[in-house]
Simulated assay, not measured.
Amino acid sequence: MNITHFLDTLNQMFPDAKAELNYSNPFELLIAVVLSAQTTDKAVNKVTEQLFANYPNPIALSEAQLSDVENIIKTIGLYHNKAKNIIALSKELVDKYQGEVPHEREQLESLPGVGRKTTNVVISNAFGIPALAVDTHVARISVRLGLAKATDNVLEIEKKLNRKIPKEHWLKVHHQMIFFGRYHCLAKNPKCQSCPLIDDCKYKDKQK
């Protein structure tokens, strides 16, 4: 895979790719990304409008009743655990960080419900710190295009992408790869016939 060709192709296909989660500050982004696990951005956006209206900052959310938060987010998957996590992480933001979202990786990853992928999304989108988050879409197309192996775990895929793709492209290419996987190289019925990267594709079931 020629990385320059790969980046140029993504720029042509998705020149304006960006996060599809709705947020207006680092706190809202952090909460939205935690809620987005194993569900769609559209589903998250439907619940966060009311959630952020009721609890606009860490102090408000840290004092929320679990049942009230659950009632707002109950249409998304794993809502019970997610409600507990966002209340708990809000309490930690208040107790440890004066209500501010930290931009240090170790501090973010120590928060309830926050893993490496969430941390990468937050530090890159909220703070401009280069990071390339690997979700299911990024992992899938990395393997199909030969940028990683099918046996690689998420961290191994991230490290390989970081080595191959220049750091200044990480933020944008993360969103472009998500768009490529979400709207073009789908898990089922990928749009192989119209794919400009078909010649680089290693997917065993690709259709020319």
Rank of each mutant, 00 (worst) to 15 (best):
R140G: 02
D95S: 14
D135M: 13
T119V: 07
E28W: 08
Q65N: 13
K160T: 14
G128V: 11
I59R: 13
T151N: 14
I72D: 00
A17W: 06
K160M: 09
G77H: 05
L61E: 00
K117Q: 07
R144W: 02
Y97R: 05
P56I: 03
L29N: 00
K74D: 02
P112Y: 07
N54R: 13
R182K: 14
K188Q: 08
I86W: 02
S142L: 09
N81C: 06
E106C: 07
A88H: 06
K91F: 07
Q38T: 05
H174D: 01
P56N: 05
H103Y: 13
P26I: 15
H184C: 05
L147H: 03
I86N: 01
A19Y: 09
E158H: 05
M13L: 15
T151R: 15
L197Q: 06
G181H: 04
G128D: 06
V69R: 04
Y183W: 11
S62K: 04
K206N: 04
V34Q: 01
D8Q: 12
V114F: 00
R140N: 05
D95N: 15
V143C: 10
T48L: 09
A64R: 04
K160P: 02
N120L: 11
H175P: 05
K204A: 11
W170H: 08
G99A: 11
V138H: 04
S67R: 10
N25E: 07
E63N: 11
N81F: 07
K172R: 12
E158W: 05
R144A: 01
D16W: 11
I129H: 07
N25F: 11
D200Q: 15
A60L: 08
T4M: 10
K202D: 14
W170F: 14
K191I: 12
G128L: 12
R182W: 09
D200Y: 15
K74H: 14
E109C: 12
